[in-house]
Design a protein around this nucleic acid. Structure first.
Length: 430
RNA sequence: GGUGAGGUGGGUGAGUGGCUGAAACCAACGGUUUGCUAAACCGUCGUACUUGGAAACAGGUACCGGGGGUUCGAAUCCCCCUCUCACCGCCA
């Protein structure tokens, strides 16, 4: 879990409260904020006290050294007794300080990011606001149009059963033109990002614990990540994890803003507990491909950057000629770390369903607090950088929509922009 | 997997119990000099927490890979962990 800085809770409590209410926090839950400040007050008090004791100990120790040099053994031994008394107090203080810190952290980890003022109130996805709906034509499918899992079979491009045999449910096997379509999309997305000036990254797919904590993927309560216990490593659920950690524990130069990274990776999600029609076919799988964009930006500019990223993702969907809509997530649907998130959904015509294909978020300083990602501003003050990321895009569901929307009597038509990448313009049966 | 050597500030690298928050050099920043550039010279130059202060700043504490221990006192001694490097083994 990421966290809010205590100072933010101290200094702008009203705004924090207002924001958390948007997430549906009630008065009882809000009491946590008071407890946090209270605990921190205690911590400060104890620390100040302890620092004085340590200061005293240091002073006496120096004296003892001097006394020994001067050959005044008796006086030195007497002074030692004094220090020993101090030591008991010190260790008691330290114990209570670490207890305070522990409880403080436990509380802090429960507090999600404060939603941006633009975030609408609401408890569930029903309260998300469509800020841009689809006004164009919807795909006109012939009678008997098939869902992508049936098309997959018919054209021999995607095999779910084979995946079950090799690994288990949720690990589809792409083959033939399906495999090539997948690779074409990856290259198309990366090339598009490169044109925008993103730096391409090929990160590790396994991360250590520190990286998992840095982006808030750990501690992993829901068991969302695949863990390799023997080596204390985790399979990444998204490229966000390794890529955002590039700048963990760094003090960056403000003139280097924005940092812009694009990374294609496979993503692994246990999706524990999910079931039903939502998980059919490519709608939700344990392993999928995704091209992710990550930016690290100056706090004053991060929301402009968010808008820019939203526009960029929108452009991708336009080029793929997919019907899409953009949603601004309400407080209740916002992820724990996000201050403002836009979701992109494409219409998958045969399922008659909107499928989420991208989520673009500004985490503001929430992640940076945990990542310890800072910069020195014009005044020499240290400040937390803002982090943002977005899928651009997640492949599995894009393929689902492409297959369904572009099916014709002749075969599945490949969008214009992808043809140079696929090397064919239609998927046909053998 | 085996053996050996190491992790010190942005970098290189001194430092084997008190005078070391840490030499020196490099980089960086500010300044002097200069027609400009370079050079030279002078100065500044870690982070976190905390106390006082509106602030500039001043004080205190902690930090030399991480954790624990010995000691009046630890970068320095002891234990555990971890990472890096080298060589060997295995291997895409």
């Amino acid at each position: 879990m990421h966290m809010l800085s205590i100072n933010r809770i101290r200094n702008s409590k009203e705004k924090v409260i207002e924001g958390l209410k948007k997430r549906g926090w009630n008065d009882d839950q809000l009491l946590i904020l008071n407890k946090i400040v209270e605990l921190d007050d205690y911590r400060k008090k104890v620390q100040t006290q302890n620092d004085q004791l340590l200061s005293e100990r240091n002073r006496l120790s120096k004296e003892i050294g001097q006394l020994y040099k001067d050959g005044k053994r008796d006086e030195a031994d007497a002074a030692k007794k004094n220090v020993e008394a101090l030591k008991e107090d010190i260790s008691a203080n330290e114990k209570s300080m670490s207890d305070f810190k522990q409880s403080l952290l436990e509380l802090l980890y429960k507090v999600p990011n404060v939603p941006h003022t633009k975030v609408p109130k609401g408890l569930s996805d029903e309260d998300n606001v469509v800020i841009k709906g689809w006004t164009g034509e919807m795909p006109q499918l012939a009678e008997g149009a098939k869902a992508h899992w049936d098309l997959a079979k018919e054209y021999g491009i995607l095999d779910f059963e084979l995946g079950v045999k090799i690994t288990g449910a949720g690990f589809p096997v792409f083959r033939n033109q399906g495999a090539r379509l997948q690779r074409a999309l990856i290259n198309f997305f990366i090339d598009q990002a490169l044109e925008q000036g993103y730096e391409e990254i090929v990160p590790p797919l396994l991360v250590n614990e520190a990286s998992g904590i840095g982006t808030g993927s750990l501690p992993d309560k829901e068991g969302q990540m695949y863990a390799i216990e023997k080596d204390a490593l985790y399979l990444i659920p998204t490229a966000e994890v390794p890529v955002t950690n590039i700048l963990r524990d760094e003090m960056v130069r403000p003139e280097d803003f924005p940092f812009r990274y694009v990374a294609y990776t496979q993503c692994f999600r246990r999706e524990a507990g999910s079931y039903g029609s939502d998980v059919k076919g490519l709608n939700r799988v344990h392993q999928f491909d995704k091209v992710e964009i990550v930016q690290v930006q100056h706090p004053d500019k991060s929301h402009d950057t968010l808008d820019e990223m939203v526009k960029y993702v929108e452009g991708l969907l336009q080029k793929l000629e997919l019907p899409y809509r953009i949603l601004r997530l309400c407080g209740g649907d916002l992820t724990f770390a996000s201050a403002l998130t836009y979701d992109f959904e494409v219409f998958s015509a045969a399922q008659k369903k909107w499928l989420e294909v991208s989520s673009v978020s500004n985490f503001e300083a929430f992640q940076a607090n945990r990542l310890n990602l800072r910069f020195k501003d014009e005044l020499g003050q240290r400040r937390m950088a803002h982090t943002l990321n977005g899928s651009a895009l997640a492949l599995a569901r894009i393929i689902a929509a492409l297959l369904e929307n572009n099916q014709t009597a002749e075969g599945i038509v490949i969008p214009e922009v992808l043809r140079d990448y696929t090397g064919f313009d239609i998927i046909k049966t053998k």
